[in-house]
Design a protein around this nucleic acid. Structure first.
Lengths: 218, 218
DNA sequence: TCCGTTATGTAATCATCGATTACATTTCGG
DNA sequence: CCGAAATGTAATCGATGATTACATAACGGA
């Protein structure tokens, strides 16, 4: 139980560093971070536990989120943002490569992040919190990633690298392959390949290469 | 609230049809069915609601399942059994076709069942209840489906239908593709293609055909 | 047939959780 | 300086998973 500091005057204008003010600095942000951390620890995210970690009453979070789903949507938004940042960083390194090599780099980075942030990836990918605020950054960031792969494949097509011209089908298959590979690993459908040792990433590379070989000309 | 029939003697040896006996016929079975139905209705499965539907006290289920996860594992087992039955029925119809055509039929049946039984597929696929009883029929049925696809691909290879000899990689990619396609649909990552109209199945066929074309020789 | 053991169901109770309501405190703009 | 708005708290509700003590029925041997 947190010790309430009552020794300083409650109405002190300048709060001394050790006195906790009645109002939290940015509770909303702290709650999201706490929830992200909870998920990362493998615990299931409860509003109360997030409040506990923020040293705040169980009802306080509801001043910032109408309900638990709204908090989870905010968590998903932040996770999706981080996901996108990492993917784009990986693609920036491969910026000069040909479109199919970039697609490969995309897929590997995708799987890599998912395996290193399984709970966050789960929150993003189940789509349970997509619906809550359809105009959110969450949707935008996700759409941007999809558009990214779409552009790579379109570029590959325009350079005559692809056998088939049916981009829509190729895009869907590619997304399904990468998504499925990541989720099957997280859902325990594959042997527990080492994450740290990079075995999963190597396997991801091989699978993506197989796919690319299947759609590439020649 | 269910009306307790107290008019018949409590100790009647032959229970009249309208008198409910103290002991349920096969509560375990009824609870599993109730849970399956709850999931199918889109509701979240709670032990209490299952008990309610079985017209039994909230504590009764715990005589048959040590905890909620054990009930869910039993539900998963039944769902997996039904899944396997349907897949094998679909494959029986295509028994005379060549291996790659059978693989295609497998994938389409897979997606079809997943789209028609989204909640049951979710329970099976998340793997949250796989761990509970690792020796269960659940694991066996799932392994059998994997072995099925493995055999089809091996046969295709032995008939010289495949470009690459790396069966392991092809198997993983194929599974990831089909699993990913099904899950992405259920998770809302694709437009809501009509289920009844067969649009998803048609799309599944196209995607699987793309994959087959990628691994097939010539 | 009787009786005791075991299987199965009930009642009562607990802790946890999401959520709401009334109230308290702080902040901030006019 | 003051009142409204923002933000936090206390108390409480209903639902849920789970446990414990107890009640009842089923079953099998003497």
């Amino acid at each position: 139980m947190p010790v309430r500091q009552k020794n300083s005057k409650p109405s002190a204008r300048r709060r001394t560093p050790e006195a906790r003010p009645y109002h939290h600095g940015d509770l909303r942000r702290v709650l999201i971070d706490a929830a992200l951390q909870l998920a990362a620890e493998g615990a299931e995210v409860s509003v109360r536990e997030a409040a506990r970690r923020a040293a705040v009453s169980p009802a306080a979070p509801f001043r910032h989120f109408p309900n638990r789903d709204a908090l989870m949507a905010a968590v998903a938004e932040e996770a999706q943002r981080r996901f996108r940042v990492e993917i784009e960083a990986a693609l920036a390194e491969a910026a000069s490569a040909d479109p199919l090599a970039r697609f490969r780099a995309f897929g590997v980075a995708y799987v890599r992040w998912a395996m290193h942030n399984p709970a966050h990836f789960e929150i993003i990918s189940t789509g349970r919190y997509f619906a809550y605020d359809s105009s959110a950054e969450l949707t935008r960031d996700n759409a941007e990633l999809v558009a990214l792969t779409e552009r790579m494949l379109a570029e590959a097509a325009s350079q005559g690298l692809l056998r088939s011209a049916d981009l829509k089908r190729i895009l869907i298959a590619g997304r399904a392959l990468i998504y499925g590979f990541a989720r099957m690993n997280l859902d325990g459908h594959f042997p527990r390949w080492g994450v740290e040792e990079g075995q999963i990433e190597r396997m991801a590379e091989e699978v993506i290469d197989l796919f690319i070989a299947g759609i590439a000309k020649g």
